[in-house]
Structures are given as structure tokens and as C-alpha cells.
């Protein structure tokens, strides 16, 4: 191996350490008896606190899941149909729609949060979990659009023409050909949408109403009071949950790719 390879492996190792060290420390100190970040003996008290004495936290988890699933579903439907239309049809204003569907991906989150806040105030829609759902669906749609469009681009339109040629109506082509073909794209679009929704802090911060706290909002309010070992315990639970989900999603993905 040449020297460049040696240099790059050193940098890569450092990068991986940089990525994982904070998480490892978090995990370690979730089992710490002391309330501070100095070691005070092994203990599960923060897990007990997390699971049995953190009702508002679990309430925010519930809110997050509701918003993630509903906005994931709606954005997947709207985004998938839009991707089919944009990929395989010509219509007036297509170019503009493509730009409008791409712009939310690149604009800073705060712009979307602020503009929606002002918009909701303008139409006198009270901030609630529903406005969070509307906002999350809005920033999720472009991701679904992107994923499904990328998948559809792998196929030639002649496949759809073949379906019509063989007697398919519009709806037959959609249900029997287009959706099954686009399915890996649709699924990954949905997964990304759910992940982004669970993850979002900035936009939610602006559009969430009182009592509509999501998990990131709740964590934010806890962070403002400094180090809390309950968050350490929560982090471990989240890391474990994402690892399990990631592995199973990885398997699902492998299955789809093989297909």
C-alpha cells in the first residue's frame, strides 16, 4: 500500500472515533449512579427514572410516533403520485413543479419553520400536533419525490407503454406495473420520511402548539437544564432501537436489492 492509503486509513480511524466516542461515553454514563459525569458506581436508577417516572417524556414519544407515521403515510402517497406524474408525463408547469418540489430540500429548515409559523398565524390555525403534521408532511414530500423519481428513472417508459399496449387501463398500469416497480423507492421514501419526522427539531420548534411536544422538543427542554442522566438512558434506548431498526431495515433493503 502506498503512503496515501496509510494517511487515509489514519484519518478514517480518527473520523470513526470522532463519530463513536461521544456515543460510547453517553452509553457508559447512563449506568452511572452519580448525577454528574464523574463515575459514582454502577446503577440502573436512570433507566428506572426513564421508564417509570417520565410520563411527559413518553407522552412526547407518543406524539412523535403519531406525527411520524401519519406524515410518513401522507407524504409517501402524495410524493409517489407526483413522482409518477413528473417522471412519465408532460404537462404545463412541469418545470416549475420540479423546482418547487426540490427547493424545500435545500432551503434551511428555519425558513420552512418560520414561513409556516407566519402562515398558520395568518390563516388563524391554532398551533397543535396537527400543524406539526402539516409541517412534517411538507418537508417529507420532497424526499419521497426524490427517492421514487430516482427509482422510476431506472425503467424505460416503454414498460408502461407495453402495459397499455397489452390492454391495461390507466389504473391497471398504476397498480400492476408502476407501484410494484417503484416499491423499493416508495418504501425507502417512507422510511426516510418517518426518520426525518422523528428527528426534526427546528421546524417542529416553530410550529408545535402547547401540549404538542415531540421527543426532540422534550429533549431540548431537558438539555436547557444541563446534564441529565435520564437523557443518557434515553439515548441508549434510542441507539439500541435504531440499531435494531437499522439492521432489520438493512435486511429488508438487501432483500429488495436482490429482488
Amino acid at each position: 500500500m502506498n503512503s496515501k492509503r496509510g494517511f487515509s486509513s489514519v484519518v478514517f480511524t480518527l473520523v470513526v472515533l470522532f463519530f463513536y466516542l461521544p456515543l460510547v461515553i453517553l452509553i457508559l454514563f447512563s449506568f452511572n449512579h452519580s448525577k454528574t459525569m464523574s463515575w459514582g458506581g454502577l446503577s440502573f436508577r436512570w433507566y428506572e427514572e426513564l421508564f417509570f417516572h417520565s410520563r411527559t417524556l413518553w407522552n412526547s414519544v407518543f406524539n412523535s410516533v403519531i406525527v411520524a407515521l401519519s406524515s410518513g403515510l401522507i407524504s409517501t402517497i402524495v410524493g409517489t403520485l407526483g413522482a409518477v406524474g413528473i417522471s412519465w408525463y408532460d404537462f404545463r408547469g412541469k418545470r416549475m413543479l420540479q423546482v418547487a418540489g426540490f427547493l424545500p430540500l435545500i432551503l434551511p429548515e428555519i425558513i420552512i419553520g418560520v414561513s409556516l409559523l407566519i402562515f398558520f398565524a395568518g390563516i388563524k390555525l391554532k398551533l397543535s400536533l396537527f400543524t406539526v403534521f402539516l409541517a412534517h408532511t411538507t418537508f417529507n414530500i420532497p424526499f419521497v419525490l426524490l427517492m421514487v423519481t430516482a427509482r422510476l428513472e431506472e425503467f424505460d417508459f416503454s414498460i408502461v407503454e407495453a402495459a397499455y399496449d397489452l390492454g391495461a387501463r390507466e389504473i391497471d398500469a398504476l397498480l400492476r406495473i408502476i407501484i410494484p416497480l417503484a416499491f423499493p423507492g416508495i418504501l425507502s421514501g417512507f422510511l426516510i420520511a418517518v426518520t426525518l419526522s422523528l428527528e426534526d427539531f427546528v421546524i417542529t420548534f416553530f410550529v408545535a402548539g402547547p401540549g404538542a411536544s415531540t421527543l426532540p422538543l422534550h429533549v431540548y427542554s431537558m438539555i436547557r437544564f444541563g446534564v441529565s442522566p435520564v437523557i443518557n438512558a434515553l439515548s441508549v434506548v434510542i441507539i439500541a432501537a435504531t440499531a435494531v431498526l437499522a439492521l432489520s431495515a438493512g435486511n429488508v433493503f438487501k432483500y429488495i436489492v436482490r429482488k
Binding site: 461521544p22 427539531f201 426532540p216 429533549v219 437523557i231 439515548s235 434510542i238 441507539i239 435504531t242 437499522a246
Partner: peptide, 13 residues
Amino acid sequence: WTNFLIRIYAWIA
């Protein structure tokens, strides 16, 4: 894939 705020919190910790 861990939460964005958790990652920020890790640095606070």
C-alpha cells in the same frame, strides 16, 4: 440514525 438532539446532548455531556 440516533436523534440529532441526542448527538448535541452528547457533546454537552
